[in-house]
Amino acid sequence: MFIQKCEGKTDEELVRMVLEDHNFYACLVARYEDKLARYIRRISASSKEDVEDLLQEIFIAAYRNLNDFDQGLKFSSWIYRIAHNKTISSWRKTKSRPQLVHSEEAQELVKIVSSDEDMAKDLEKKFDAKQVEKILWKMNEKYREVLVLKFLEDKDYQEISDILKKPMGTVGTLIRRAKNHFRGIAKKEKVDL
């Protein structure tokens, strides 16, 4: 019933509604649980149960801090920030390597980080998702996280800036360096981009 009342409402309007009636929170959860679950799986080695537990933690934390949500920010950036921080802190305790990419995503990511000359030559080439993952996991965490947010989660620079709490200029620099870093590791690993 509440989910129907939420149709057509923006996230920011929903936040205001939730603060008056917590039942509307189901709408926000429904909107973000799949996206956040996928993001959690990308950046941590969590099992299905662990993902659910983390999701619960994230949504409860978001609910508790709802009065801290700044309407000048996108709600998605705000909740992604909470998800990022909680997941990274949980992953750092286990340090196990998750599956970051699937085969279609691997193709997409390699196309993006390849240079323009390489792209024209190698459009037909197929890349093993495991190879790409291997490269990603050899990367410095700060480069890996911007690549994931930009190219796998499709976030723009402002959103990444708000999620990671870094200036936009720094985000741009990190993405540029991340691409170079990716190519450098690929070369060392003899992965032909």
Binding site: L19, A26, A30, Q56, Y63, R64, N65, D68
Partner: peptide, 27 residues
């Protein structure tokens, strides 16, 4: 999974009487 998660979360909010922290705390 969709309704299950949101259901679980709402249930937890009700059971543990979780409320959003007051705005003055953040201010």
């Amino acid at each position: 999974m969709e309704e299950k998660i949101s259901g679980k979360i709402l249930e937890k909010i009700k059971r543990e009487k979780i409320i959003p922290d007051p705005k003055w705390k953040f201010l």
